[in-house]
Write a protein that binds this DNA or RNA. Sequence first.
DNA 1: GCTTTATGTTATAATTCGGGTATCTTTTCA
DNA 2: TGAAAAGATACCCGAATTATAACATAAAGC
Lengths: 224, 224
Amino acid sequence: MIRILAVDDDLHMLNFVSAELRQSGYEVIEAGSGEQALLCLNSKTVDLAVVDVMMPGIDGFELTQILRKDYNLPVILLTARHHIEDKERGFLAGSDDYLVKPFESKELLYRVKAILRRYDHPAENTLIIGSLTIDFKSYEVRSNQGILLIPLKEFELLALLASKSRQVLSRDLMIERIWGIDFQGDEQTVNVHIKRLRQRLERFAPDVQIITVRGVGYKLEVNP
Amino acid sequence: MIRILAVDDDLHMLNFVSAELRQSGYEVIEAGSGEQALLCLNSKTVDLAVVDVMMPGIDGFELTQILRKDYNLPVILLTARHHIEDKERGFLAGSDDYLVKPFESKELLYRVKAILRRYDHPAENTLIIGSLTIDFKSYEVRSNQGILLIPLKEFELLALLASKSRQVLSRDLMIERIWGIDFQGDEQTVNVHIKRLRQRLERFAPDVQIITVRGVGYKLEVNP
DNA sequence: GCTTTATGTTATAATTCGGGTATCTTTTCA
DNA sequence: TGAAAAGATACCCGAATTATAACATAAAGC
């Protein structure tokens, strides 16, 4: 099931959008504000976001930036105006598409489809990285050495690193994604978990390595 | 260099499109018909296609289908009409986006960028300068000699110089951009980092050189 | 209820960077 | 030509960053 996050402070519009999307077989999560949208993402994974530009608090541009950067989500922006400057801001923020209200529902659906088609949708249950297979459903990690059951936090850390393999992720980002925005603890926590994960990988999948980039964060690399 | 295939039987429009794209730094290959477009693809690889709908022979819809299916190319369709049926046909054929003529050139450019980004096109996260590739996501520098991991400050310095290659940058500017406005230290610091960077490049990418412009600053140059 | 495991904290060790400084080299121009 | 300025180079060392280990709870399993 493909899950779409719809964000709009205008309830009327929000209902319209989600009704149309649901009718086409998508699962829709509704959020009345940018803040609420981010909360939703902590508990649910989604495949695409449809976001209104004009909102109090975190506005559409800001939200788009966060969704693209931290969650790697495709975004369709909705706006009442169609000034070129708005489009410029939207695309700069990283939106994938831009719809001017009022629009026909078909228009929205086509654009949703086009984007999902392009994201060739690896929302599967497993992720293969080097000799490792990470199974999100069973929370297992497999390699040619067998099945490894690892603690949740380490699993999440590995999954996060693997989902953005080769990219350096900051400790900050990891904490936000794994522990949540309101985690009180230290960044040292990440270091410790990295250490534990490394120990496991060392024996279990020596070709997968966690590289430290001093001053920035960590990344996952696969050696030949 | 990102290469875009522009297809239109209307030469006036074709010139407009390719001029705009070229001005933004893309390499453009022009084709006056669908048939010609397919011919081009035999000799050149391209990253994206901008296709007019109304063409004699193979029309835009048909071409889109072929490009998507056989070449896995993203496609932006251009049309004079904006009937919803046309958009429907376009999206069904597999286009990624749809622009109605007349459109502003910026509109086209944003959509091109958005699509390339959607494809997670390497060009969006990397800077290529001579034999070097600077990867901002992995903080790696690659050349035909392999992968180089360099300290953060040197990486930032290289990235800055590369992003403005051939332009002379003052030490002042570099400090402001890399260390921040409130850096207390000496301009000598820059010299030292330049020295270190030079040593690295010497072995790793001899075609890329940091030139001193006495009394002004440094610039990056690529030798043939 | 006892043992084991998970997870965060704290303390300490290890490492690497990055900036300072001293000295040598080159350039410039009086 | 030679003194002064700018830059290159070599080296040092403190401090910020990260790694590691040991510990303390809490949760889960038996």
